[in-house]
Design a protein around this nucleic acid. Structure first.
Lengths: 231, 231
DNA sequence: CGATATTTTGAGTAGCGTCAAGATCTGTGG
DNA sequence: CCACAGATCTTGACGCTACTCAAAATATCG
């Protein structure tokens, strides 16, 4: 568990953060102050658990600094990453909004000292439901996530690791991009680190990507795209 | 495309159907009549397309009779079933509620002559957003679907076809259950018909299920459960 | 009873996961 | 700046699962 702190500066910071959060764009000052009034900052060190599957989803958290990885755990220590949420993103909104909600995934802090702002779930729920603009934003957000989820499902069903890795590379490599560890990539793609290593090596040998000290550059987007599409 | 009809009896029928739809439980008479006033019934024969990926999601449809399979198409004619919606269920709610929405999946009618009630998307959206009880129901619904989607994702990542089939059997076989075609099962589980056939045969030979004329009965739930969990 | 669809089964293949060893990287303390 | 320890990456060898293609068996329906 991470240490948490709540100091005098919290309140204005909380209002400012909430005001910048995409999902709370439609909120008025009144709602923001109500939320901020019961909000608390917490700080987490890298790898601290933010929540675990089975925990009651009684607070809605917004990332203030750092990032949080939400994942499911499988047998043999394998993990599957559902998402990595950075600043201004919310954690497991779905579980929090489902009134009987329990978290169905684990989440832990990544990278830099991570700071989250948490507000009680029932308050967040109440305010969201009674502010049409917020409800609309939340619904749009959940709808998009469902579409994303469907895309991920059929990537798993219809295509192989090579295709999923190629898609990742095309997404994240307009500019040269610092690759995460192979184990993180594997968790993102639904495979194991060894396979990621082999596929990366393969793309490199084909000259489709350049790879130096964990920095990747896409050299041949067209060929990668062909792999995504399915040879 | 299916033939459609709109007759004099439509309106009261539409109000009645909407009133029974789980998602519209929170709607008042006023909202129901507004929706029903612009609703139209359409009838589809088996295999008629209800919508296709890429179509504008400009109407929200509720199943009145029959059922509709929503699926994504992969290479080589393979399909992956996202869901089968029966009476009082809504079709691809997520796409309809995402304002810029286009359908990202295909849908076609199944079984009996299928009848759908469709209301314009913008009207549905407007009414939902301005009725807190409705917004709440929609949000809860989308949240549950996200949880379902996550469960399906990790079933694909962490377990094999055998485990997914066993889970299906345990879900649908309190009572003896009429199995769908192997191709439908395959689309549901993310595999191909041949594998479904083999796995069913295997469970049968082990005595875990009984299988006669496409009617399956679970004989040994404990062993099937072990397969789901992961040996 | 015949025609067609569906299921079953066999045989071959490709992709992925596992295990284990070796190579490379990273950070630390001397 | 170097040496060392621990982590991470790479690579090989192997087995298993699932997919493909094709043919035979069975079921379904008129």
């Amino acid at each position: 568990m991470g240490a948490w702190q709540h100091d005098a500066v919290s309140f204005p910071d909380a209002v400012a953060l909430l005001a910048l959060t995409p999902l709370f764009q439609g909120a008025g000052r009144e709602q923001l102050t109500a939320l901020a009034g019961r909000a608390r900052f917490r700080r987490y060190d890298t790898h601290d658990a933010v929540f675990r599957a089975g925990d009651a989803a009684d607070t809605l958290s917004v990332v203030a600094r750092g990032s949080v990885r939400v994942y499911r755990a499988g047998p043999g220590g394998r993990e599957f990453t559902l998402g990595i949420e950075g600043p201004r993103q919310m954690l497991d909104l779905a579980a929090v909004l489902d009134s009987a909600g329990r978290h169905t995934a684990h989440a832990h802090a990544l990278g830099e000292p991570t700071q989250l702002l948490s507000v009680p779930a029932d308050l967040a729920r109440h305010i969201i439901l009674h502010t049409p603009a917020l409800a609309g934003a939340v619904i749009t957000h959940l709808a998009r996530r469902e579409a994303d989820g469907q895309r991920r499902l059929d990537a798993l069903v219809f295509s192989g690791v090579g295709a999923r890795l190629a898609a990742y590379l095309l997404d994240h490599a307009g500019a040269p991009h610092a690759l995460p560890r192979n184990s993180e990539l594997a968790a993102l793609l639904g495979t194991v680190p060894e396979i990621v290593s082999r596929k990366l090596g393969e793309f490199y040998r084909l000259g489709w990507i350049d790879l130096a000290r964990r920095t990747v550059t896409v050299m041949n987007p067209a060929e990668l795209q062909r792999v995504v599409t399915g040879d």
